[in-house]
Design a protein around this nucleic acid. Structure first.
Lengths: 345, 345
DNA sequence: TCCCATTTTTTACGTGTGTAAAGATTACGC
DNA sequence: GCGTAATCTTTACACACGTAAAAAATGGGA
């Protein structure tokens, strides 16, 4: 059975025998028309191929029902997890998510923001690119549509609503745990591409100093190009282990991907990190990357609460869209990380 | 300096002192107006905040310059890699990509298709969900806009253009390699959620039979729920190793995520897979998941050519959009996998 | 200075739907 | 059968821009 194709609501109204304005109301809320007409329209729709034109639909509305999400990288399970939670939360709230990936390129990030503005999205969630982001873009965005920063936040944007993990606290948690169980940790940093990494590093340093330990940070120099975190972690730790350094220390990695590289460097040197191991060699990460339970040994890490962050950022954005609680200082929501004890530390 | 905000082209034309149709032409092609006016407009734009309305812009055009991409899962680096390549290729070709993730839900997948139709995208690339996909949706899509299947293809959709990896060939390659270097492999399957997995399994069986070996497939029963491939691989292999089975065999895994789980099961049993190892215990994967070089031991696998697949699918879609080479049988493009020899096999 | 070609302005209509107002129809209770 | 309220149809305008045609302005060369 071939359904006849119908392009406009006008045609549809003829085909069904109902006026166009009535159809229009039906599509926006089927309960806004009498039940008998509602049934009549439903029956008609089954016999026909019709999809309302998205553009025409949204053009006249104050609200487009869309929220834009800018995500910096696709090839990182951390971000995809976050994006997934955001999409699900937005879907729940009846919004359509348009996501754009900046592919490590500030120019693309800027263009994505531009696209959102021209599409009249009701609001945007921005997971910033990092240090390279073009801050002017955010300022521009700010003046035109509600937006919330997620996961990380440039130091120059402290006046914007923000949802993320309390890195200070979570890093403390881990540092504290490592100190309690053995030698105070060394921090394996990553190239300065991201604000969170710095926050964690700072938190580590503060915590160590406060407890009378001497902080040691390695891996701040760029060894591998770009976002090859695993390769970076492997190269840095390999270099030190080759010199016989840190073979009986805890290595606290800036994130799990770095830690995965570090695990490999350890294996190459015949070291098996773990709290059960003699000698006190241990490796810990941060983020609870989905693969952590499957590394060898399984990686001890701090889990970020993706779901809470995703949900909270969407809800807050919707609040702003609706003009609720928009006076006063920017609303900052920080969620606690959870220590995931596995094998490696 | 505060730029005055301008909402419509009408207002802009007053502000700059140029007629609206001229502005319209300028935005579509700056060279279509006299250079002096072009400069005048440029100067004006610098003093003013203006973003053309996306919807109004596209409504009257035959072409919206957008292509839609449906991707089944976000939390899998395989798909994100593919999506990235697609986005970059589309960007190169001057198209805007709208991507929608189906989150393992056929209903969401269907809605994404619906959205694309209502947005009048010029065409769509579809990476199917797998067996659960609602095939009616594709048929519907087919009758309304050009689309190309990517990565995997339902058996009921053999009449649609398709771009992917030649699994038959790549699986042969691996099976052949494993046979040459030691005991013929056992195939560690994954739950039947995906057509590629089956294709690979079939290819394995055919190859083994053709060469006089007895094919053995394990892990077809669902042990872990859903897409927890790593957990599945670990559980299946662990069960067999516990019985003392396959400790001197090659394990060919349906994909790398399954293999990562298998690696862990091996480690738990004190086995180190590798071509250098005595006893012939080896593990191999498929896809060249980005983490493969960092597993312990590094995973031998078959790399899919993401870039080629992404580029080819976009180019083919654009061909269809332009009405080129659309007669004749469906165009199938299969790319060869490349054997990545690392440590595990 | 004048003519002609090029470019711009003016005017007007099209895109598909939202939406408001006024008039026509229907449903329902009495 | 009548009145009233709910619902529907008709009509009209709006949204922001594409686009076509005719009229006006501009620029450059002779």
């Amino acid at each position: 059975m071939k359904k006849s194709k119908i392009k406009t609501m006008e045609e549809l109204s003829e085909a069904i025998g109902v006026s166009r304005p009535t159809l229009s109301r039906y599509f926006q809320d089927p309960d806004s028309v009498r039940e008998s007409t509602s049934r009549k329209i439903q029956l008609g729709l089954e016999k026909v191929e019709y999809v309302p034109n998205f553009f025409a639909t949204r053009m006249n509305r104050k609200s487009t029902g869309m929220i834009g999400v800018i995500i910096p990288y696709l090839n990182d399970l951390f971000f995809t997890n976050l994006l997934e939670q955001i999409e699900l939360a937005a879907m729940d709230a009846g919004y359509t998510v348009i996501s754009q990936c900046s592919h490590s390129d500030p120019a693309i990030e800027a263009r994505a923001a531009e696209t959102f503005m021209s599409m009249n999205v009701d609001g945007a969630l921005v997971i910033p690119l990092g240090n390279q982001s073009d801050l002017k873009v955010y300022r521009r965005l700010e003046s035109r549509l509600p937006f919330v920063l997620v996961d990380s936040r440039p130091k120059t944007m402290l006046d914007v609503d923000y949802v993320g993990t309390d890195h200070e606290k979570s890093c403390d948690l881990m540092t504290d745990y490592l100190c309690r169980m053995g030698e105070p940790p060394v921090f394996l940093a990553m190239p300065r591409v991201n604000f969170n990494a710095l926050e964690r590093e700072d938190a580590y340093i503060r915590h160590m100093t406060a407890h009378g330990h001497k902080p040691e940070v390695i891996g701040t120099e760029m060894i591998e190009e770009g976002w090859h975190f695993e390769a970076h972690g492997e190269a840095v730790l390999d270099r030190h282990l080759s010199r016989g350094e840190y073979t009986e220390r805890s290595i606290l990695c800036a994130n799990d991907r770095v830690a995965i590289g570090a695990l490999r460097a350890a294996a190459r040197h015949g070291l098996v990190p773990g709290r059960g191991q003699k000698g006190g060699f241990r490796i810990a990460g941060h983020d609870d990357y989905p693969l952590c339970p499957f590394t060898i040994p399984a990686l001890t890490t701090i889990a970020q609460d993706f779901e809470a962050i995703g949900k909270a950022s969407v809800l807050r954005l919707i609040e702003i869209i609706n003009g609720e609680n928009t006076d006063g200082p920017p609303k900052i929501q920080l969620f606690d990380g959870i220590l995931k004890l596995r094998e490696s530390a």
